[in-house]
């Protein structure tokens, strides 16, 4: 197994040559920006272009900054809350559509519509909907006798509004992946479970959800990576306000780098975010592999086991006598 690989690496240099154009693109558009950002984060680079290497000074600054800490906390809260809500809602919708007998294709298409909007439109629409003076939601609250909510002037309502907009836009993504996974579940074990006495809730929790685990982990992983980079909806709806109460790391980096011109500090912020996303992704990937590996390791073991089982046992050369009467 190892021999052909090492030969390929040592002798067949032209393979590397053929691979070099995509690798060059990767280096130019992924590795260089990453390296450059990290370098900038270690300098006092300002928008005027003057810079000097200052080590971890920017990191010390942002870790001591209340604004950054607030933005960082908000980012984590947004990511956790939106992804969880999207998962629960997406799963519920997927199950409902899966069980509906009519109009499935129409429902499927309708449910995907929010995902097709650009985030700018989503942010603007929801900002209008939540507007305290002329938004329909405030009007509705008024009509049914609920107290007026200061949607954009207090932290919790503002965060809730952002969460609602993001959940509205991205639940369809969860729905899509989970619905496809549901459709591809093997039906036989579910039928077997029904015959064995499971129904409704038990069928769902004992059988369908465990079988959906790999798809669930994948969907959550993809959404989490995106959720940590939340920017456009927040930018449009609250601009991070009131104050910096709903700011996120990306928003904070934007204001610091492109508005205030402090590129070094902004780069440090995005690098911090990158590290956090990396760690979160690694944890989720580990969970995903763990879910899948239980199965694949089992398959390897089974292959070995089958071979061992097939070795004829000389003591069983003579057929065992049949135990009871057989026709």
């Amino acid at each position: 197994m190892a021999a052909p690989q090492s030969r390929a690496a040592g002798g067949q240099w032209h393979k590397h040559l053929l691979l070099s154009p995509p690798l060059a693109f990767f280096a130019a558009f992924a590795l260089f920006p990453l390296g450059f950002t990290i370098y900038v984060s270690l300098s006092n680079w300002s928008i005027t272009g003057e810079h000097r290497f200052i080590g971890f000074g920017n990191y010390a600054t942002i870790l001591a900054s209340d604004t950054f800490r607030q933005s960082f906390l908000n980012t984590v809260v947004f990511a956790v809350v939106t992804v969880l809500l999207q998962y629960v809602l997406g799963l519920t919708l997927a199950l409902l559509v899966y069980r509906s007998t009519r109009g499935q294709s129409a429902l499927r298409l309708l449910l995907l519509v929010p995902m097709m909007f650009t985030p700018v439109v989503v942010g603007f629409v929801w900002k209008t909907l939540f507007d305290p003076s002329y938004g329909p939601i405030s009007w509705l609250f008024d009509r049914v006798g609920l107290p007026q909510v200061p949607w954009f002037s207090e932290q919790l309502p503002a965060m809730a509004a952002i969460v609602i907009a993001d959940v509205w836009q991205w639940t369809p993504f969860m729905f899509l992946i989970l619905f496809a996974a549901l459709r591809s579940l093997p039906t036989a074990p579910l039928e077997a479970a029904m015959v064995d006495g499971a129904s409704g809730r038990r069928l769902l929790f004992d059988h369908m959800l465990p079988m959906l685990l790999p798809a669930s982990m994948t969907a959550i992983l993809l959404r989490s990576i995106e959720a940590f980079k939340l920017f456009d909806v927040v930018y449009l709806m609250t601009g991070g306000g009131p104050g910096v109460k709903t700011s996120t790391v990306t928003l904070s980096a934007y204001f610091t780098g492109l508005r205030s011109g402090d590129l070094g500090t902004a780069a440090a912020m995005t690098t911090m975010l990158l590290i956090v996303v990396l760690i979160a992704t690694m944890v989720l990937l580990r969970l995903l592999f763990w879910a899948g590996r239980r199965r694949s390791r089992a398959d390897d073991a089974a292959a070995l086991q089958v071979e061992r089982d097939d070795v004829p046992d000389p003591t069983e050369a003579v057929d065992a006598p049949v135990t009871t009467e057989v026709r």
Partner: peptide
């Protein structure tokens, strides 16, 4: 689930 009938399926249908 209330019939108390057991069934063995063609492809075994074990809970994976």
């Amino acid at each position: 689930e209330r019939r108390d009938i057991a069934m063995v399926f063609e492809n075994y249908a074990l809970y994976p």
